[in-house]
Simulated scan of single mutants.
Amino acid sequence: MRDLFDGDVMEPRDVQLAPGAMLLAGFARPLEASLIEAVNAIVERAPFRHLVTPGGHRMSVAMTNCGRVGWVSDHTGYRYDAIDPESSHPWPQMPAVFADLAARAAAKAGFVDFRPDACLINRYKPGAKLSLHQDKDELDFNAPIVSVSLGLPATFLFGGLNRSDKTARYRLTHGDVVAWGGPSRLAYHGVMPLPDGEHPLLGAQRINLTFRKTR
């Protein structure tokens, strides 16, 4: 697993994962209180749920959305929809703190003027994982993906443009942000099963915010 620290003082450092892909260590940590408060408000209106894949598999990761559209999955396929299928209401609006963080992280990774219109909010409990996949349900592949980690540490897998390409492992901790686009926009990525643990702010879970521009 790649180490995100240098020297005896253990200062976090940014890491280039691949051309167009950057891990920004601790980038979101100064906003942790505002981000967690915003997540809680969103979940009150659009609770976490376990989606089912078109093949009938129940995802181990629970999720919800905010923004103009949300990502959903059922027996008919994967898609973005402006309406929460559980409530029949629009998804909660994206909080300003979310959009600002995503734009600043993207800019630091080399992608200026990023304006996401969807934020997928994933909740990992111990044992939950995310299989290798590409983010390709969007119409605009020119915009990057920005992913924010909160809570328990997780092992992030980042590979190439083919599923069979070798993947590297990176330990993501509370406040880390990964942004990828350009030549890495369709890179395969995933999350290994979350180990047991207890985070002082979020307990036995990891929350992941994934920002996307869908069109």
Rank of each mutant, 00 (worst) to 15 (best):
A96Y: 06
A96L: 12
A107D: 13
A99W: 02
H75W: 10
A105D: 08
E86I: 05
P95S: 08
F98A: 02
A99D: 12
A82P: 15
A82H: 13
A109Q: 09
A105S: 10
I83T: 09
T76V: 12
A107K: 15
A103R: 14
Y80C: 08
P92G: 09
S87V: 00
K108S: 11
G110A: 00
D84L: 01
A109F: 04
T76G: 01
A105Y: 03
L101W: 08
A109W: 08
D74L: 04
P95T: 03
Q93E: 15
S87A: 04
V97A: 01
A103I: 02
A105H: 07
W91K: 03
W91G: 04
H75Q: 15
D74F: 04
H75M: 11
I83L: 07
S87E: 06
P85A: 06
A103F: 05
A82Y: 07
Y80G: 09
A102Q: 12
A103W: 06
P92F: 07
K108M: 14
D100P: 00
P85E: 11
L101S: 06
G110E: 09
A102H: 09
A96S: 13
Y80L: 07
Q93D: 15
D100V: 12
D84S: 01
A109H: 11
G110F: 06
G77K: 10
D74M: 11
A107T: 08
F98C: 01
S88T: 10
F98S: 07
Y80N: 11
R79P: 00
A103Q: 14
L101N: 01
A96D: 14
Q93N: 14
A106V: 07
P95C: 02
P95L: 06
P92N: 12
D100I: 09
H89I: 00
I83G: 03
E86Y: 14
Y80M: 07
G110L: 05
G77Y: 02
Q93Y: 08
S88Q: 12
P85C: 10
A109S: 12
V97P: 00
Y78M: 10
T76E: 14
A102N: 07
A109D: 10
L101E: 00
P92T: 07
Y80P: 03
A109L: 09
H89S: 11
P85T: 03
P95V: 01
S88L: 13
A103G: 13
E86M: 14
P92W: 10
A102Y: 15
A82Q: 12
A82W: 05
H75D: 13
K108L: 13
H75G: 09
A82L: 07
G77T: 06
R79M: 07
S88I: 00
F98N: 03
D84Y: 06
F98L: 01
P90V: 00
Q93W: 04
I83Y: 02
G77A: 12
A107S: 14
D74W: 09
G77P: 08
V97R: 05
E86A: 13
E86G: 11
A99G: 13
A82T: 11
D81V: 02
Q93H: 14
A99P: 00
